[in-house]
Amino acid sequence: MTIFQRDLFTCQRPECGHLESSTALLVCDHKVPHRGDERLFWDENNLQTLCKACHDKIKQRDEQSSLHTRGVWH
């Protein structure tokens, strides 16, 4: 909730900027994937508000496209 309030309940993707009053439609997202690093996981400067649509579509597409450079866990 702290991150949503800080970001004024607004999606931080520059191409979106959607203001969302329902927190059920917002996601607190890690800018840099934490990959188990607790420091990155809890760092509020590494967190941003995304609307669910941007998170589920754009952010996931971006992360999937980097699989070949970062490897996949089995």
Rank of each mutant, 00 (worst) to 15 (best):
S65A: 15
G17P: 05
I3R: 00
D56P: 09
L25F: 08
S22Q: 03
N46L: 13
T49A: 05
D37I: 10
R39V: 14
Q60D: 12
R35Q: 15
E63N: 10
T69A: 15
C28D: 11
Q64G: 15
S21R: 06
L19F: 08
S65Q: 14
L50Q: 02
D43I: 12
D7Q: 09
L26A: 02
C16V: 01
K59H: 02
L8C: 10
H30I: 04
Q12L: 13
K31N: 10
E63W: 13
F41E: 14
K31E: 05
C51K: 00
L19Q: 06
L25N: 06
G17S: 04
E20M: 04
H34T: 08
H18K: 11
C16T: 01
Q5V: 12
Q12D: 05
Q60M: 14
H74W: 13
D62P: 06
G71E: 13
L26F: 01
G36H: 06
C11T: 02
H18M: 11
F4D: 04
I58Q: 13
W73S: 14
H68F: 14
Q12F: 06
L8D: 11
W42C: 13
H68Q: 15
D37G: 05
E44I: 12
Q60P: 12
L8M: 11
V72G: 14
C11H: 04
R39M: 11
T2M: 07
H55T: 10
H30L: 10
T49H: 02
P14I: 09
F4M: 10
